[in-house]
Design a protein around this nucleic acid. Structure first.
Lengths: 237, 237
DNA sequence: AATCCCAAGATTGCATACGATTTATCCACA
DNA sequence: TGTGGATAAATCGTATGCAATCTTGGGATT
């Protein structure tokens, strides 16, 4: 797979172009337009975005830092190919952090937030009922955005950054090991969590969140490719 | 404050020099040899380590990503000056993550690990009983290393990276807002946590960890400088 | 036919150069 | 004496060039 479609800037970036490129690549990765193993060469990225290798390189470095990209010395950058072990660690981390985020969010959530969440869930549902890869991608993205909005409401910027990374990497993991239509039940669970938040029932909200994460991970097929280090390497190129 | 002492490479780095520079600067920051607000100009860092601005810049970008350094466009990089609000968020994050790390560590800790922890605690104690700024610095570093070792034993690389960041940033916070001789009681608490781990008493170990974090945060003076945005800005230069 | 080796091409690692922006200095002027 | 503005210095943002390293393809040898 190569980068064949022109990736558009979502906004005119007056400055800090490497940040904009990072965002564009991030979106492409969590959208699965760039699949694990895809090579991201500095010159190719640079010419796609009409910048020099220097700034392309900076964007790739940032992505490497958050684990979405792996760089090999003198070889280049590749979209990460998380191992089952990594996948487990990602979800273990989420199980640790997200209940805390729910607990913090329930203290700070406002009616306006609730309203925004409802709109978000409607969007999820809309994509859920559509067919086609584009809708599927949008659904995955919207599903992740629910968790990120929650982190945003919680009001802890550090945890928010961690969740940014974890949600993005989860998306990669689901792309690799996902078994079914990802969030067919996920959407209902998001709804239930939001209901609990609205009622102010923190205990239930955190419980629902834990189960939600359990369900996402349960939908993965982490055993199959466990011992296939060689095949993984082959899949890389 | 300027960078006036030659910072030595801990190891001969055959390659990936930016990583080595990042490590050296990281250590200098958590050791408080570089205090919050210190400017880290690309050329200065570069010439100190005998590299070009390109690689110095890469190191600074990494530090900015983990929150130890803040960059301002066209102005440069400065050692972070965390606000009281940031400090609270850092400790809130630790309260969320570290109990989970303790719980994971107790499942995996080996007698060899215990032995290593004991040696680590002896070192803490040695520095605690010494006087002088160098010993104080070493004590702070050793105290943080206890938490990082725990994260390492827990075996989750993602959480380990998060803790790396949180411990380093905590060190900055303590430098800014710390009230007393930091870990006079901290050492005893580390010992107690280790004892609980050795006994296999997970419930007690996590409780002790939570209290330990509470105590560290309680030792901070976060109210005083809360409204002084202006003075903070002044302290920057 | 399979294997090994070497050279050509491609890509990264790094240094340097130049324009843009910010900061500092100094002089004019009120 | 203090203020304003213009010029100079310093620093960053970015592009580009060269050397080092890796990959690839072809040809010779067994």
């Amino acid at each position: 797979m190569t980068i064949n479609e022109k990736i558009t800037f979502t906004e005119t970036s007056p400055e800090d172009r490497s940040l904009a490129i990072r965002e564009a690549l991030r979106n492409a990765i969590i959208d699965r337009r760039l699949t694990p193993g895809t090579k991201l060469s500095e010159s190719e990225v640079g010419s796609l975005f009409d910048v020099s290798r220097t700034v392309a390189r900076a964007a790739l470095q940032m992505l490497a830092f958050e684990g979405l990209v792996k760089t090999e010395r003198n070889r280049g950058a590749f979209v990460s190919n998380p191992s089952p072990e990594e996948a487990k660690q990602i979800f273990a981390s989420r199980r640790l952090i997200e209940p805390g985020i729910v607990a913090a969010a329930i203290e700070r959530i406002t009616p306006a937030d609730i309203e925004q969440f409802r709109r978000q869930l409607e969007e999820e549902e809309r994509y859920m009922n559509e067919r086609g890869p584009a809708a599927r991608r949008a659904e995955i993205k919207a599903s992740g955005d629910f968790h990120l909005m929650l982190a945003s409401v919680a009001g802890n910027l550090i945890l928010q950054k961690f969740m940014d990374e974890l949600v993005a990497r989860s998306s990669l993991v689901i792309a690799l090991y996902g078994r079914s239509g990802v969030s067919s039940c996920g959407h209902a669970e998001h709804s239930a969590i939001l209901d609990a938040l609205e009622k102010g029932d923190g205990r239930q909200a955190t419980q629902l969140m834990i189960h939600h994460i359990d369900h996402i991970e349960a939908d993965l097929d982490l055993q199959l490719k466990q011992g296939l280090g060689l095949k993984d390497a082959l899949a890389l190129t």
